[in-house]
Design a protein around this nucleic acid. Structure first.
Lengths: 328, 328
DNA sequence: TTGTATGCGTTATCAG
DNA sequence: CTGATAACGCATACAA
């Protein structure tokens, strides 16, 4: 690989001149012309490490995602990467593959790589995470969960929950089933659920909460078991994936959606539009969350002051999987 | 950030001693004990750049993917990253977001980052790609398409096509619709299609080819237009996503699957199991393709000889979306 | 405008 | 077993 020294020799100048040429410093027209040619010809690429070694900045941003096959993180990643590209930063994606230990490990790995900052797509934030981030000693933005010690971007899950809950109530549904996840995921397991329940208050709703996981398949199996013995006319899945799982079970059980049962989810995943009937859901601005994460991280890196928490709005999309309660 | 020099000073030894200590060289029990403590206490992390600057190896592998929301690449990425982790390499994922230029750009970016090698998930390989790879001057493994100048991992698309085609024929279907993509994607647009057509030869099949894109939505719209005027009893989508799009259209048109129309896809995407009825498809070993890519790349980096092309097998999974032709 | 010298954090060589 | 020193590729302060 050709170095700045090689270029300097070929051009018959000092390497500092080449460096200046490369970084837009003062060079004579003649040397510039010569260097233009030589650099192009030899396809010279500055060594980023050597640069970083001096500059103390790597222009690399690390991100840790819980898994690759999530519509939400994929969209956020797109937003994140697009913003980062504009500011000439490289994104280093680390997939923790649903493992808490791998998340911790990733924090340390990224710190070793000397990334300028870390964007963490969180399911939960444990003391081990906090410790690892402290040791990493690098700006951090957390997306999807909130924590008092870090800069966080969260979705207004309470509002989202309320939207769906209120929609069900307003459409005359009085027997409602909610497929949720456990409380270790605060955003989905606690806040979103709270929102839903708030909407039910004072409406004499016959409400059942069923605990499942984020996996489509678990929701499917659970629904296969619950739906036959349920009198619910409206079922809410805590995520669109859960809703899809429920939908398959309903189809298999010959329960018609929405005629016999209305179904709603959360997220606004692409797949909710690809199935029939299309699923009513709450659209979350995932891509925007990534863009915002990039923006905040850049400000943090430049040591600016930024609000600790930013909340993103969302919007209910009513589609064909839900309708007015036929019995009212 | 604490450096080897700081550690050396604190311990009252030379930095070369610390270096030896860190890299498993000869150190006395006493110095070792002292350094153990100091390193742990100060949470010292060697600077990867400084290391790379000397070592000429960065232990980073770059990968370029066409888009983030693809089941196939996500699975491959998982395999790739898992293998890489075992050999202490970091994966640098670059998303080209469906843009050819961004792919080329990414090759150059990764070269600047001095990655030890590149895994390219290809849709097509143009002369511009070839040129960029040559300039990058780094080991390359291409997954999903074949090219005579590079090490490639491909799927046996011809076999996959034949499996589905032969299955349809064997089940008495004589009027068959194929939703495919254009020839710029050789693997899917040419090879896979060829396989399908081979299976039809000599069987007097009434066969119609419909060109669409990889997007679920395009397939949906195309199907909405084509299905009503088609007499086909079996429809093949060139990918599972295409099949899903067709399925939605069929549902909307009140065409029963599989009673009135059998439907099959390719890939073995998770979603084919999440819909009802589950879709007959060909399972591709995507995760394995990633693992193999890692293995080959490592050998290439160590300058070993490796076969230019490796073909992965696949397997037809018959599910509920297909059945015997009711009219025979 | 150009060149010299120095340092970034690490590893390796070689003498002690 | 240990320490001084050079080298990796680059940027920059300073001198010319």
């Amino acid at each position: 690989m050709v170095t700045i020294n090689d270029i300097a020799k070929m051009a018959g100048v000092a390497k500092s001149t080449v460096s200046r040429y490369l970084n837009g410093g003062a060079v004579s027209g003649k040397t510039k012309a010569k260097l233009d040619e030589i650099v192009a010809e030899n396809d010279y690429k500055p060594n980023k490490f050597a640069q970083s070694l001096k500059a103390k900045r790597t222009h690399m941003v690390g991100t840790i995602i819980p898994r690759l096959n999530s519509f939400a993180t994929n969209e956020a990643l797109r937003g994140l990467e697009n913003s980062l590209r504009l500011s000439k930063n490289q994104l280093l994606i680390t997939n923790a593959d649903q493992s808490r230990e791998r998340e911790i490990e990733a924090i340390s790995t990224l710190a070793k790589q000397r990334v300028d900052g870390i964007v963490f797509f969180a399911a939960a934030i444990t003391p081990a995470h906090v410790k690892a981030f402290e040791e990493a000693d690098v700006p951090v933005v957390i997306v999807g969960q909130s924590h008092p010690d870090f800069h966080c971007i969260i979705h207004d899950d309470e509002k989202a929950g309320r939207s769906v809950g209120a929609y069900a109530v307003a459409n005359g549904h009085r027997n409602i089933l909610v497929f949720g996840v456990d409380e270790s995921d605060t955003a989905v397991g606690v806040t979103r659920r709270n929102g839903i329940e708030q909407a039910f208050e004072g409406h004499d709703i016959d409400y059942t909460f069923v605990k499942t996981s984020f996996a489509m398949k678990d929701a499917y199996e659970k629904a296969l078991e619950i739906l036959p013995q349920s009198k619910a006319t409206f079922v809410i899945g805590a995520t669109d994936n859960i809703a899809i799982g429920i939908m398959r079970a309903a189809h298999e059980l010959q329960i018609e959606i929405p005629n016999q049962l209305s179904l709603a989810g959360f997220g606004g995943y692409e797949i909710t539009e690809a199935v029939y009937p299309r699923i009513t859901t709450v659209h979350y601005p995932f891509q925007e969350s990534g863009e915002l994460a990039a923006k905040i991280l850049m400000e943090l890196i430049l040591e600016k002051e930024v609000d600790l928490i930013q909340t993103l709005d969302n919007e209910l999309l009513v589609r064909e999987s839900t309708q007015k309660n036929a019995w009212t």
